[in-house]
Design a protein around this nucleic acid. Sequence first.
DNA 1: CCCCAGGCGACTC
DNA 2: GAGTCGCATGGG
Length: 280
Amino acid sequence: MIQPTEKGFIYTGKNFDIAQICKCGQMFNFFVNQKGNYCIISGQEFAEVEQKSNSIHILTSNPSYFVNYFDLQTNYEEIIKAVSFNDIMLKATYYGGGIRIVRQQLYETIVSFIISACNNIKRIQGIIKRLCVNLGERLQNGEYGFPTLKSLAEKDENFFCNIGCGYRAKYLQETCKVLYSTDILQKLPTLNTIDARKLLTSLSGVGNKVADCILLFGLQRTDVFPTDTWIKKVYHLHFENGHSDEKISDFFVDLFGRHSGVAQQYLFYYQREESLKKNK
DNA sequence: CCCCAGGCGACTC
DNA sequence: GAGTCGCATGGG
């Protein structure tokens, strides 16, 4: 399944599509290079992913980091079987069968999803890129890593404003400072999902939806179901009309249980790609 | 010009 | 607890 090479490693397992992984809205710090390969920056680590028909070539100086990052020890075929019990999920898992939930660094996830609030994905990527170029360390290949928490905590509201964060500037400044000067980041992984969500929503700029994304993408809690505008479309099209975000989230957690977060990614990707196609 | 984007916080009742 | 509103900025 995982075979080391001189330049990284090769993955020959199932359920891996790098375009789907990048486009399902879980991470923002990536780009497509001249060869058409997806390049991922996570923290200070970098990987170029070459998707071939029967194998995934991952070029990186830190293979073990990306074996963990891409969640390669988890069997997604089992999860797909478990959640594909109705028509819409059969379609969504067929459509996005190569999605995996990547294991991102916690503070990077918190910062990224504060930026994501009421924002579009292109602009989120632009803001994060500017964060990296302004504050991140330069990597060997000329790209910039994600800034350290310390460097973020030292910046004032004006800095975040100037790189285009809009009204999220204050949230970012406050939360980075709090994360740097407390033990919240160390404590979060030790808490159960309910208590971790409570602690997360005490942070500036973190409400229920952003907290659920942090729980899912930064703390690997798949028993949550982030409800955003795309999920609301799915809910209204295939289930019921109305209801608060909170109720929609509860409905889907009841439906999907411990696989809720993964199911959410299939539905998000399916609905968003379908909508984008129609608008072309 | 418009509406929308992986919402949040403050305020109201 | 639920409903409204302002918030910055850019994509389409």
